[in-house]
Amino acid sequence: MLARIHTDHKHILTLLRVLSGKAKSLREGQEVNLTLIRDVVHYLLQYADTSHHPMEDILYRYYLEKKGVEEQISQLEVEHQSLRVATEELLDTLGMILNDAVIPREKLISDVERFVRMQTRHLEYEESKILPMLEASFNEDDWKQVDQLVASKLVEDPLFGRGSEQEFEDLRNYLADADG
C-alpha cells in the first residue's frame, strides 16, 4: 500500500515538474503546448482525484478510527477536496483557452504556478509527516485491513500503468521523449 502511494507521488511530482517548466516557459514569453498542460491536469483529475486521494482518505480514516482524532490527519481529506476543486478550475481555464476564450497569459501562468505549489506542498507534507507516522503506527494486520478497504479504489494508472490507455498517449510520448 505505501509503495503504491509513494510511486503515485513520484509520478505526480514528475507531472508537476512538467507543469512548472511549462509555466516558466510561458513566463519567458515562449509558446507552449497547452493541450499537453491540459492533459497533465486532466490526468490528475481522472487518476489522482478519483483513485489516489480516495484511497488515501480510506487509509487516513482507518488511522483516525484506530488512534483517535489527529489534527494533521483529519485535515488531509479537506485538503484533498481543495485540490480537486483547484484541479477542476485549472482544467476549466485550460478548456476555455483551447476553445479560443481570451484569458490573460499572466492569469494562466499564476494559476498553473499556484496549482503546482499547492500540489507539491501537499505531497511533501504527506511524504515527510503523514506516511512515516502511518508506517510506524500500523502493524501487519492493519495493512491487511486497509488493503481490503481500499481494494475498490485501486485502478490501473492510465498514464504510468501497464495498460495502454489511448487517452494519455501524447502525454506518455512526451514523458518518454523528455527522459531520452
Rank of each mutant, 00 (worst) to 15 (best):
L91T: 03
M118K: 15
F115H: 05
V102N: 12
T93L: 10
L91K: 08
M118P: 02
P104R: 14
T120K: 07
M96Y: 06
V102A: 12
K107Y: 11
D111F: 07
K107S: 14
E113S: 11
Q119M: 09
K107T: 15
L98A: 00
L91S: 13
D92C: 04
M96L: 11
L98V: 03
I97C: 02
M96C: 02
R105C: 11
L91F: 10
R117E: 14
A101G: 00
L108P: 03
F115E: 04
L91V: 00
P104A: 10
M96H: 09
R114F: 08
G95T: 06
D100A: 09
T93Q: 08
L90F: 01
N99H: 12
L90Q: 00
V102M: 10
D111Q: 13
T120F: 06
E113P: 01
R105G: 08
N99L: 09
E89P: 00
M96V: 05
F115D: 01
R105K: 15
R117N: 12
L98R: 03
S110R: 11
L98Q: 07
I97A: 01
L98C: 02
N99A: 14
G95I: 00
D111A: 15
M118A: 13
D100S: 13
D92R: 15
M96F: 10
D100Q: 15
T120M: 06
L94M: 06
V112Y: 02
R117V: 04
G95Q: 04
L108V: 09
G95R: 03
G95M: 02
K107P: 01
D92I: 07
D111G: 05
E113I: 05
L98G: 07
L94E: 03
L91G: 02
K107N: 14
L98D: 02
K107L: 15
V102Q: 15
L108Q: 07
E106L: 13
I97M: 04
D111P: 01
I109Q: 02
V102K: 15
V112T: 11
A101D: 04
L90H: 05
E106G: 07
R114Q: 06
I97W: 07
M96A: 07
G95E: 08
P104K: 10
D100I: 02
A101H: 07
V116Q: 03
L94D: 01
S110Q: 12
T93V: 13
D111I: 03
I103F: 03
M96Q: 11
M118L: 15
L108H: 06
K107D: 14
I103S: 05
E106N: 12
T120Q: 07
R114G: 10
S110F: 08
V112D: 01
L94V: 04
I97E: 06
I103G: 03
M96R: 15
I109K: 03
F115W: 09
V116R: 08
V112L: 07
V102C: 08
I97R: 02
L108Y: 01
E106F: 05
M118C: 00
I109R: 03
F115L: 07
R114V: 00
V112G: 07
D92S: 13
P104Y: 09
L91C: 03
I103Q: 06
E89D: 13
L91Q: 09
R105T: 12
E113H: 05
D92V: 14
